[in-house]
Simulated scan of single mutants.
Amino acid sequence: MSKSYRELALDGLWNNNPATVQILGLCPLLAVTGTVVNALGLGLATLVVLMGSNICVSLIRQYVTDAVRLPAFVMIIAAMVTVIEMLMQAFTFELYEILGIFIPLIVTNCTVLGRADAFASKNPVLPAALDGFMMGLGFLVILLILGGMRELIGLGTLFTNMQLLFGPMAADWQIQVVENYGGFLFAILPPGAFVGLGLIIAGKNVIDKRLKAIQKARASDEPKVSRRVRTTGKVS
């Protein structure tokens, strides 16, 4: 394995996040993140498919030839998505109807196939599983942030209809952040999703820029400290 577990975690959550760095899976990300529950449902489904397909691909990596590698990976991903579809139809049918075609479209999500081909097919099961989990978690976090932003600005609420995913016990989880809110339709529509995702990516870029500036400043200070130590024998 070329990367440590810490690097795999940081790649999935920040350095190589599928949504904010690779800019993959935008179709479902922008289409169904109108509320937190929609974002959570799609994000969990994608995470399970990513992790499951990575594990399966890693297990068969030594037995699949290059000629059938990609078709085999697509079949594995399609099988995982079919399982998720059936589970959602059985236990969260109303949410499944809301998400609609975007659950089957996980098969075409470039993140899933990309991780299977680029990482899982070249690494043992445990690193492959961690890579799939962290990439899926990074995608889920961005979905939740975007879904929360759009629901808050568009409806003035948070955690609306959480019972669609967690059952009757979640019926009272809704938070009315703004009383008598008239709504902001733009935030709920796809253009609002584009603006919201752009703000998230811009925020990440600002943080990255500041972190690099801090690292550069520390690196430039190290030679000065070393010279003082050599000349005085102590750190001043």
Rank of each mutant, 00 (worst) to 15 (best):
V68E: 15
I214Y: 08
K204M: 09
Y181F: 14
T111K: 05
I106S: 02
L211N: 11
G192W: 00
P191C: 09
A118K: 09
D131T: 08
A213N: 06
D221A: 09
K3T: 06
I153G: 03
P127D: 04
G43A: 13
D208M: 03
I142T: 07
L50F: 03
A72I: 11
L185D: 15
L211R: 15
I153C: 06
L155Q: 14
V21S: 10
L8A: 04
M80N: 10
V74R: 01
V49P: 00
L144T: 03
K234G: 02
R61I: 07
W14F: 11
D172Y: 08
L199M: 14
N109A: 04
F166D: 01
L137Y: 03
L113Y: 10
D208L: 11
K204Y: 08
F184Y: 13
L24K: 07
A217I: 08
P71W: 15
P127A: 00
V48C: 11
V83N: 04
R218K: 12
V112K: 01
L50H: 10
W14P: 01
G198I: 09
P104A: 13
R228P: 00
V206F: 12
T231R: 07
L165C: 03
N15T: 12
I207G: 02
Q174V: 09
Q163D: 14
M86W: 13
S226I: 12
L87E: 13
P127N: 00
R61W: 09
Q176A: 14
I77S: 00
L197N: 01
V74P: 00
L30N: 04
I153Q: 05
G203E: 09
V48E: 11
